Simulated assay, not measured.
Amino acid sequence: MEPLDPGCVSQADLNFLLHRAAQKLGAAAQEASSVHGITTRGQLVLTALTAEAPRRTQLALGAALGLDKTTLTAELDRLERAGLVIREPDPADRRVRFPAITEKGREVQSEVQALHSKAENTFTAALTPQERQTLRTLLNRVIAANTSPNTGSCL
């Protein structure tokens, strides 16, 4: 295991450790996403749009993903230009849009998901399968138990 930089040891609290782990895994995920010309955030959006959930407005999608309106709009613009999503107007309110994934978007999402899984496996290679599951379980419990409002972007 690579030791912490001595200048950071005093900051090796949980926040620091989670942030540093997220930075490292995030960089690997971004590299994997860029193979297909999208961002990690773009993959997050595509994955959400592949879900069998009821059709969501752009505003509801942003809330579910922890992305503010400006950030989500910019990401959807990029994905739409790439032919990975379309935005359909609500017949009842022309100001409302429903993002939907295209067939090309589904293919890219699936391929990037496989690359993300490979990056995650490499990132957690020092852990046993049981430790990986325990890490996931504990992170989910911490997230679920925290009643603070969600703020900022999840990526």
Rank of each mutant, 00 (worst) to 15 (best):
A82N: 08
V112S: 11
A53F: 07
Q130V: 12
N150W: 02
R55Q: 11
E107V: 12
D90Q: 06
K104Y: 03
V108N: 01
R106D: 06
L135M: 13
L127V: 05
A32N: 10
A28I: 01
R41I: 06
R132C: 14
R94F: 04
A63K: 13
S148N: 12
L25P: 00
R97S: 08
L79Y: 01
P99A: 07
T102A: 05
L67V: 04
T122P: 00
V45Q: 01
L72M: 05
H19Y: 12
A145G: 15
L49Y: 02
L84E: 01
A53K: 05
V9C: 12
G26N: 12
L17F: 13
K69D: 10
E88K: 11
N150P: 08
C8R: 14
F98S: 03
N15Q: 12
T40I: 00
Q113N: 13
A21T: 07
R41E: 04
N146K: 05
R94C: 02
C154Q: 10
A114G: 13
Q130P: 02
M1R: 10
V45W: 00
R81G: 01
A64Q: 11
I143H: 08
P129V: 00
K24M: 08
D5L: 12
A60N: 07
T40Y: 03
N146G: 04
L72I: 04
G37Y: 06
N121E: 15
G105T: 02
D77Y: 09
L59K: 14
M1S: 12
P54N: 01
D90C: 11
P99W: 09
G62L: 03
E111R: 15
L4H: 06
G7A: 11
P99K: 08
A144Q: 13
K104F: 03
S110N: 10
E111D: 07
A126S: 15
M1T: 07
I38H: 02
K24I: 05
N150H: 12
A114C: 07
R20D: 07
A126F: 15
E31S: 13
A119G: 06
L79S: 00
G66R: 03
T71Y: 00
L84N: 01
L135A: 14
V112P: 04
L155R: 13
H36T: 00
P3N: 09
R20I: 01
L138C: 09
G62R: 05
L4D: 04
A32K: 08
P89N: 06
L84H: 03
T124G: 08
R78V: 02
A22P: 00
F123N: 05
V142M: 14
R95G: 03
Q133R: 14
E31K: 13
R55M: 08
E120Y: 10
V35E: 13
D90N: 15
T57K: 03
L65R: 04
Q43T: 01
T134D: 09
D5W: 11
P54E: 07
T70I: 05
T70F: 00
T128Q: 04
R56L: 11
K104A: 14
E111A: 15
L61C: 04
E131A: 15
A48H: 09
